[in-house]
């Protein structure tokens, strides 16, 4: 069991998401930073899709009844185990009775804690991801509270030695964040001049930046053609509100919305959204669809290579 001594400012159980239910109005949910999430699970020796803790801005404090093998990745929350500092993007052994403590995020905004075997909460519609708006998934559909206890799933037989991810694969987190996007069917709803304004000016992440969407502050845009009928929205869509302010759609978004979309942030850059904090600067650049796919596949190649380094015996034949 993992006992929650202090939950942190907003800590939820997340996995790779609740796919296949958008047609019923359920968003994907899942880890906001797919890169750090996948890295933490790989380092902890987990299967793809295992449930982890996503901590936002300030991490929690956890007591372990049993020993465990675990890993952290994402924002640097100065993890300490029984007063020993732990390196980020690394795995480690937690002795039975130990206390794992996280502080405020120094760089980035969201940290992922993966334990071997995964967090064993009850899946809802095939996923353990917490979706707080509907109160489903995770622990009672809510963020963790002091006094909660979390079960650890059955650990895989393989034990890996503690390992740190090679530096070259650790993304740098710093503002301004350059977000690449592909243009979409509604980009033409904005005049050339408005598009130029959007791509030339930077925006600032406002305080309204959560798992549903991020509101950005900056020069408002004028939508020239405005007869958007509600249609599927998706993680990474950049919507322009009636007031002209951009919203980035994040994983707990409403599945359909009626705002005009100027474009879509590429999947390979989703991690940057998750790690951008209020007050950080964002700059958009347009890329082509093929480039977006290339970079997405590039991240998959990194994970394949990392898996090979961690478990060469499984990949040697």
């Amino acid at each position: 069991m993992i006992n929650v001594i202090r939950p942190g400012s907003f800590t939820t159980i997340q996995d790779s998401g609740r796919w296949g239910y958008q047609a019923w109005g359920l968003p994907i949910s899942g880890a906001m930073d797919p890169y750090a999430y996948a890295a933490a699970n790989l380092l902890a020796g987990n299967q793809k899709g295992a449930a982890v803790l996503e901590m936002t801005q300030e991490g929690g404090m956890f007591h372990f009844d049993e020993s465990a093998f675990a890993a952290i990745a994402g924002a640097d929350m100065q993890a300490v185990i029984d007063d020993r500092k732990l390196p980020n993007w690394s795995s480690f052994i937690i002795p039975a009775g130990a206390v794992l403590r996280f502080g405020r995020a120094l760089k980035g905004r969201r940290a992922y804690f993966a334990v071997q075997g995964g967090i064993a909460s009850v899946p809802v519609m095939g996923s353990r991801s917490t979706y707080t708006a509907a109160g489903i998934g995770g622990l009672e559909g809510r963020a963790l509270l002091t006094g909660d206890s979390l079960s650890i799933g059955d650990a895989a037989a393989c034990r890996q030695p503690p390992y740190s991810m090679p530096e070259k694969w650790v993304p740098g987190y710093r503002s301004p964040w350059e977000l690449s996007m592909v243009l979409g069917p509604q980009t033409g709803y904005f005049s050339e001049a408005e598009q130029q304004k959007f791509f030339r000016n930077g925006y600032i992440v406002s305080d309204m930046a959560g798992r549903m969407d991020y509101e950005l502050a900056g020069p408002p845009l004028v939508v020239s053609e405005h007869e958007s009928v509600s249609e599927a929205s998706g993680w990474g869509a950049v919507e322009i509100s009636e007031g002209g302010h951009p919203f980035i759609v994040t994983p707990d978004h409403g599945t359909t919305r009626g705002f005009s979309k100027i474009g879509y942030i590429i999947q390979a850059d989703f991690y940057k959204i998750a790690q951008a904090a209020p007050g950080d600067k964002i700059e958009f650049i347009a890329v082509c669809n093929a480039e977006a796919v290339k970079r997405f596949r590039g991240q998959h190649e990194i994970f394949k290579a990392l898996a090979m380094l961690l478990r060469p015996e499984k990949h040697s034949i």
Partner: peptide, 18 residues
């Protein structure tokens, strides 16, 4: 293909490019 979403005037089909 991961899923599709029906809306008023069209269907959005989601897939995993990898």
């Amino acid at each position: 293909m991961t899923e599709y979403v029906e809306a008023f005037t069209g269907v959005t089909v989601f897939y995993d490019p990898a």
